[in-house]
């Protein structure tokens, strides 16, 4: 990666979210969330289910439409309080890669095609270039030999690594991970976490919704603990996870750390 991790000093943050609100009907899921992510940071979003962490992630690339607030990713600024131009949303998504809990590989294409097709359709790359990039990324996630296989012939852990490669092929500035190991056996989850750790070391900016506290503690620079649509606590990961200040966070971490 050409972008060395920087602490953000003197540089505007790569992602800036201000007072973001989202409700599903009468249910307020995000009650005014503000987050800044400098380039190169790995940010973990943790909290109980229903806390709004996945919704926040999905609002960043407009898989969910927020109702109020402001957002900026790289050079794309979005006022979320009104309707947003489709072009602008596509520009926003162009900066963002997304990895889903259930991988969502396209089952009717080979592993290679999964990575090649979006590059061809969205970035207009040639077949040769797209395949070269795809094979290179498959090599990086340790699955070069699976290129011509069907996704159905790959294990869950392999599918998730392929999904990471597919997202990376689009040259995102920020990678969003939505509980990437929650659908996997703990053992298989480790191989996905290893790939994510490598990615973090390479300087990629990452926002990771996770229940993997060890990963959050060791790999992420900063952890945000969310509950009931609010940010309850944020800070350096080890501090937030080991010595949470609020009662709500203490409850949560003592429960998950006991497991």
């Amino acid at each position: 990666m050409e972008n060395a991790p920087v602490s953000g000093a003197g540089q505007p943050p790569l992602v800036k979210i201000e007072k973001l609100r989202k409700s599903f009907g009468p249910l307020d899921v995000l009650k005014g969330i503000s987050v800044e992510v400098p380039r190169g940071e790995v940010l973990a979003l943790v909290g109980p289910s229903g806390s709004g962490k996945s919704t926040l992630l999905r609002c960043i690339n407009y898989l969910e439409t927020p109702q109020a607030g402001h957002m900026r990713v790289a050079d794309v600024s979005v006022d979320c309080s009104g309707p947003v131009d489709a072009k602008k949303i596509r520009a926003l998504r162009g900066h963002l890669g997304m990895v889903f809990q259930h991988f969502n590989l396209f089952p009717h294409m080979s592993v290679l095609q999964n990575i090649v097709l979006p590059q061809r359709r969205v970035l207009g790359r040639s077949v040769e270039e797209a395949e070269h990039i795809a094979l290179d990324l498959l090599q990086k996630v340790g699955l070069r030999d699976k290129a011509s296989a069907s996704p159905a012939r790959c294990s869950g852990g392999q599918q998730q690594r392929i999904a990471i490669a597919r997202a990376l092929a689009m040259n995102p500035d920020v990678m969003l991970f939505d509980e990437p190991t929650s659908a996997l056996d703990p053992e298989v989850g480790l191989e996905v976490l290893a790939v994510m750790t490598d990615l973090a070391k390479s300087g990629m900016t990452m926002i990771v919704v996770t229940h993997e506290m060890r990963f959050a503690e060791r790999v992420s620079d900063r952890t945000i603990f969310m509950a009931d649509g609010h940010i309850v606590e944020e800070g350096p990961s080890e501090e937030v996870i080991r010595n949470p200040k609020s009662e709500r966070a203490r409850q949560f971490f003592s429960a998950v750390n006991d497991r």
Partner: peptide
């Protein structure tokens, strides 16, 4: 077809037409 298919296509920035033609219709 799992809704995740269309979501993945959207997140990858495929256009509506390509999402239909390349991802949804063949499945």
């Amino acid at each position: 077809i799992h809704h995740g298919q269309a979501e993945a296509a959207v997140a990858l920035n495929l256009s509506k037409w390509h999402t239909f033609k390349d991802i949804i219709a063949p499945q």
